[in-house]
């Protein structure tokens, strides 16, 4: 663990009991770390376990095993009270700005409740006004209810709510996927601005690579509960070494129509397999364009030997680069 690491996740695993003795391994032996002040993008198709990972880190659900070191404390081993205390420093912004705000509370109460229970009673209204201003909301709107705001404004409320507790880490769980494209950029810009101003560390979860490209320092790609590839932005976007990453990248439209029409695309076929019954060997092999016999028999380990950054593929070095 490096000095700069604010968060180190090791071997994080979550099994969901779905009844009749069946287990779903939603998150399977996931390890990564995040440095103070950086932004980690966590990408994968829906159901890959990325949101679960976020909730495991914050102990909104309890992990089956593993450890989450946050500011030198293992969150998973903390007693409930201590954990609640630490939650202030690690906040989350949820995907759905409509559902994640209590419809029966005013904006002031939504934003102010956290500071209130953590003893910031004095100047509470000032504090609320301050964070509202910071996220670009008019503080005069504090008495309003969430349903009186647009989606983008609501997500600003969600961010203000998180900021109000002075966190060092904010996990953004697909914060813009429910918003219009035009609004998405505003929120992304707001987040990067805030990161700079407040020296925040961000984990940014998304289901497509394009959204995280501009704001992430490093990117982790997840597939069926496991990390498939982890690297810096350049490593992942310029030298994708896992066929899954390549497939995701080729799904990203290129803004030049000519290039877009002519480029070779690796299409992902079919839906992800059921996590109830994951494929043997490499989990990606049934959909992988370069799968060999070995892929269905031996599960590849996440290793940096082949291409210099961690990739979980038997044939990482053989993948032709773009």
């Amino acid at each position: 663990m490096s000095e700069d690491d604010i968060l180190v996740v090791e071997n994080l695993t979550k099994n969901f009991d779905v009844g009749r003795g069946q287990m779903v391994r939603a998150v399977d032996d996931v390890s990564f770390s995040v440095k103070r002040g950086e932004t980690l993008g966590l990408v994968g198709e829906s159901g890959c376990g990325k949101s679960t990972t976020a909730r495991l880190i914050l102990r909104l659900i309890e992990a089956t095993s593993g450890s989450v070191m946050f500011e030198e404390q293992d969150l998973l081993k903390l007693p409930t009270n201590e954990m609640r205390r630490l939650r202030r420093r690690a906040q989350i912004v949820f995907q759905d700005p409509y559902a994640s705000l209590n419809p029966r509370m005013t904006v002031r109460d939504i934003i102010g409740e956290g500071p209130l229970v953590w003893g910031m009673k004095a100047n509470l209204d000032d504090r609320v006004a301050e964070v509202m201003t910071r996220v670009g909301l008019n503080p005069d709107w504090a008495k309003r209810y969430p349903h009186e705001f647009s989606g983008g404004q609501r997500q600003r409320i969600g961010i203000a709510r998180a900021l109000a507790l002075d966190p060092t880490l904010i996990i953004c769980d697909e914060p813009v996927s429910a918003l219009d494209v035009s609004v998405q950029a505003q929120i992304l810009n707001l987040l990067t601005d805030l990161q700079d101003e407040l020296d925040l560390t961000l984990i940014f979860i998304a289901h497509d690579l394009s959204v995280v490209r501009h704001i992430s320092d490093r990117v982790a790609v997840m597939y069926l509960g496991r990390i498939a590839e982890l690297g810096t932005r350049d490593e992942v976007y310029e030298r994708p070494s896992h066929p899954y990453t390549r497939a995701l990248l080729s799904a990203v439209p290129i803004p030049d129509p000519v290039t877009e029409r002519n480029r070779a695309r690796t299409m992902l076929e079919g839906d992800p397999p059921s996590p109830l019954n994951p494929p043997s060997g490499c989990r990606f092999h049934p959909r992988c364009p370069i799968a060999q016999q070995v892929c269905s028999e031996v599960e590849p380990v996440l290793g940096s030997e082949a291409v210099g950054h961690p990739v979980a593929c038997h044939f990482a070095e053989a993948i032709p680069q773009v």
Binding site: R55, L58, L60, R84, R85, L86, R87, R88, Q91, I92, F94, D96, A99, S100, L101, N102, P103, E113, G114, V117, W118, G158, R161, A162, L165
Partner: peptide
């Protein structure tokens, strides 16, 4: 099950 309950928990409320 609602999201805002998760939000409330994430605020560190008891």
């Amino acid at each position: 099950e609602a999201d805002y309950i998760r939000t409330a928990r994430s605020k560190g409320l008891s």
